[in-house]
Amino acid sequence: MQMAFVPEASDPGQGVATFLGTGTSVGVPAIGCDCEVCQSNDPKNNRTRCAITVRLPGGTLLIDTPPDLRHQLIRERIRLIHAVLYTHEHADHLFGLDDLRLMPFRLGHPVPMYCTEVVERQIRAAYSYAFSDREDTHPGATPKLEPVRIDESPQSILGVRVLPIPMKHGPHFDVFGYRIGDFAYCTDTNSIPAASIERLRGVRTFVVGALRDEPHPTHFNIDQAIEVARKVGAERTLLTHTGHQLEYSVTNSRLPDGIEMAFDGLQVPIVLESASA
């Protein structure tokens, strides 16, 4: 492998979140759909599967590995991922993992992969070849990953404090959102418990999933996302994991002040909290 890559120096108290994808599990446009949003020429109605990167002084943290990952990283000119953090184990947040195969060449070591036991178990089942004892036929034949088990306690990742936000995603799935400094990312949920709302107090930017106007059994709809945003009280709320029922400009025109739809490529500054704080 090549020598380890050293990230460029930056302000240790500042970070930047980049929305790689803001769409539903099938993306927008959806395959075979002729609706107005899927046929729109507005690039903000073109939404790939959900993920973000957070540029930190210690490197770039990727949250989730969606199936569109290769395209997303090339589009945003992100050359290197230093660590991956998972919200949950669903396919639209997991099945771009193989696109990380190039990263260990530049890092000089396996990619740290922060996840719960449930997520790690799913990754090992879906990507069993990445954890085989069989010797690789050539460098880069399989992803080189280093699972790091997490729970709901604060985590130190790339030198900053990351606080998991326990949430529910329908009746069967426990998932995590994450708070990083004054920024919180809470996609794929339809219930954020009171104790988790307390973990979100003081964030300036709150990202939350809002699938559509109609109710859904596993996701917040627009009205529910607005309600939880008011509980959190952030200066700015960004809606992600939005479906093709929501046209970007029309939806934004009717949202309350301080709440808007996110879009692929959107960048948000973050004030960080060091891991030692």
Results as ranks from 00 to 15, higher is better:
Leu246Thr: 08
Gly177Glu: 03
Gly177Arg: 03
Val148Asp: 04
Val160Ser: 11
Val54Thr: 12
Asp257Asn: 12
Ser249Asp: 15
Ala277Gln: 13
Val250Pro: 02
Tyr127Ile: 12
Leu94Val: 06
Pro112Asp: 10
Gly23Met: 12
Val268Ser: 08
Pro7Arg: 04
Ile165Lys: 06
Ile157Glu: 00
Arg70Ile: 00
Arg49Val: 01
Glu117Gln: 14
Leu61Ile: 00
Asp223Gly: 05
Val26Cys: 09
Arg55His: 14
Arg75Ala: 14
Ile31Asp: 15
Asp182Ala: 08
Pro164Asp: 06
Leu97His: 03
Ile180Met: 00
Gln224Asp: 12
Ile197Asp: 05
Ala234Lys: 06
Gln245Gly: 15
Pro193Gly: 07
Tyr178Asp: 04
Pro66Phe: 06
Val162Trp: 03
Val207Met: 13
Thr187Leu: 11
Asp68Trp: 10
Thr116Ser: 15
Ile270Phe: 04
Leu56Phe: 09
Cys186Asp: 02
Asp99Cys: 08
Asp264Val: 06
Gly21Glu: 05
Ile270His: 02
Gly108Tyr: 03
Asp68Phe: 05
Gly209Glu: 03
Arg79Pro: 00
Arg106Val: 00
Thr22Tyr: 03
Leu107Asp: 06
Pro147Thr: 13
Glu260Ile: 01
Asp11Asn: 14
Ser153Thr: 14
Arg79Ala: 08
Asn46Glu: 14
Thr65Tyr: 02
Pro193Trp: 07
Pro29Asp: 11
Ala275Gly: 10
Pro104Lys: 01
Val16Tyr: 05
Asp68Ile: 09
Pro269Thr: 12
Cys115Arg: 07
Met3Tyr: 09
Leu94Ala: 03
Leu239His: 11
Ala4Lys: 02
Thr48Arg: 15
Pro171Ser: 12
Asn252Arg: 15
Cys186Trp: 01
Ser156Ala: 15
Pro29Ser: 08
Val268Arg: 08
Ile180Tyr: 03
Gly23Asn: 13
Arg49Pro: 06
His109Ala: 11
Val119His: 02
Pro154Gln: 12
Glu89Gln: 13
